[in-house]
Each structure stands twice: as C-alpha cells, then as structure tokens.
C-alpha cells in the first residue's frame, strides 16, 4: 500500500522532470534555429503579425480601461489624504512596473499562446510535422523558431502600448473627469519614475514573459498527445501553465529588481 503510493509519487515526479527536460531540449533546438531564420525574415514577419498585430486591439482596449480604473480607484483613495497630485505617479508606476508586463503576458497567453498550442498540436495530430521531417526539413527550426522569436519580439512592444495607453486612460479620468491638476499629474510622474529603474526593468520583465509564454505554448503543442482530446488538454495546460509561470516569475523579478 505504502509502496504503491511511493511508486505513484515517484512516477509523477519522474514524468514532470522528463517534461521539463524535453522542454529545455526543445528550447535549445528553437534558439539553435536562429541562424536559419535570419536569412528568411518573412517567416518571422508572419508570426509577428499573428502574435503581435492581431493582439493589438485587446491590448489597447484592456490597457485603456485598466488605466482608467486605476485613475478612478487611485483618486478615491488619494483624495482622502489630499494627495490627488500623486495620482499620476501611482497610475504610471503600477502600469510600467507591474500591470503592463504582467497583464499583457496573461492576455497574450490567452489570445496568442492558446492559438499557437492548438496550431502546433493539430500539425502534430495531422502528421504535418512528420511530413516535414520526411522532406528532411527540421520542423522545430522551420515551424517553431519563427513563432518563438515572433512572440519574443512582440511582447515588449505590446506591453509598452499597454502601459502608454493605460497612462493616457488614467490621465483622461484623473485630469479630464475628476479635475486633478494637469501639470502636477505629469510632473510628479516624471519626478518619481526613473527611466532605467522603472521603464527598462518593465521592458526586461516583458522580454522574460515573452520567452516564457511562447516557450510554454510551443512546448505544450509540440508535446501534445496527437488526438483531439490531447490537443484540447494541451491548449488548456498552455494557458494555465503560462499564467502561473508569469505570475510566479513576476514575483521573483520584482524582488530582484526593486528589492532595495
């Protein structure tokens, strides 16, 4: 009885470890395909279109509304202390440092990551990847590498759009609707936010999230059981794992970057 439980525990532990190992081997293969991708920028372009351009609408609308809500909520709290002028720094700091990179990563995981997993999983289920291999084309380098770098490049740009539109949304609510002073809103923001400390660290965060989200999406698709049920499970796992990884990593990155 005890032995059975131990066997189950050991088996699940080994399965998880083997999965992590396969994911890293896949990542090495994907990154190794970069030299072959560079002479063919059209492949990369198509993926930036799929992951980046098609996500712009949801990113822009969410960024605007998140910023507006931050402006509204922040105003109610800050107003109690007579610190309305700090609204700008509050909205901008929370967007640039945290919400921009994190919410963008979560939205991209839902909007583009799930699509990547389903696409790769179906390619596997319908043996398109095997067909490529039969033609002596490495499916990892031909199919996965452009998708990976597309996501890697699109993520920081999307996060920057999210933060910028969020700040504008907060400005619209704070200055336009609630009557915070326009000059104080911007000057407090510029006085307290540092380019290297805040903006660059936010970009680094979103680059890391770009790697993690696309890597998990591609791995789950590539590693899916090649059946319809398998692809459906892989798509769910892709979104769940990507969201958990982004939130967990965000804590670690925040502790490292803004620790002192």
């Amino acid at each position: 009885m005890v032995i059975d439980a131990l066997v189950r525990l050991g088996r699940s532990g080994l399965t998880a470890l083997a999965g992590i190992g396969r994911a890293h081997v896949l990542l090495a293969g994907i990154v190794g395909g970069l030299p072959e991708l560079l002479p063919r920028p059209r492949l990369l372009l198509a993926q930036i279109y799929n992951i980046g351009v098609l996500s712009v609408l949801i990113i822009a609308v969410s960024g605007l509304f998140v910023g507006m809500v931050l402006g509204l909520q922040g105003y109610y709290v800050l107003n109690q202390f007579g610190a309305d002028e700090s609204l700008g720094i509050m909205v901008a700091a929370s967007l640039v440092r945290e919400l921009g990179p994190v919410v963008t990563a979560l939205l991209v995981a839902g909007r583009a990551g799930s699509a990547l997993t389903a696409e790769i999983g179906l390619m596997k289920a319908t043996e398109q990847l095997s067909a490529l291999e039969m033609m002596a084309v490495d499916p990892v380098r031909r199919v996965l590498t452009p998708r990976f770098f597309g996501g890697f490049l699109a993520m920081p740009l999307l996060a920057a759009m999210f933060s910028a539109l969020g700040v504008l949304g907060g400005w619209f609510v704070g200055v336009g609707l609630l009557g915070v002073d326009d000059g104080a809103f911007w000057s407090q923001m510029q006085a307290k936010l540092d380019f290297r400390e805040d903006v660059i660290n936010g970009v680094i965060k979103s680059l890391v999230f770009g790697v993690v989200v696309t890597w998990i999406a591609l791995f789950e698709g590539y590693d899916a059981t090649p059946t319809s049920a398998g692809v459906s499970r892989a798509t769910t796992r892709s979104v769940v794992h990507a969201a958990l990884a982004v939130l967990g990593l965000d804590f670690i990155l925040t502790a490292l970057m803004f620790g002192d």
Partner: peptide, 16 residues
C-alpha cells in the same frame, strides 16, 4: 506603434 509607446514612456512618463 510599439516604439512610439516606449518613447512616450521614456520621455513623457519617466525622467529621461
């Protein structure tokens, strides 16, 4: 658009 947003964050939002 992405780089314009980054530029906006750099020049208007932070103290660059």
């Amino acid at each position: 658009a992405g780089f314009v947003a980054l530029f906006f964050l750099a020049m208007r939002v932070s103290n660059l």
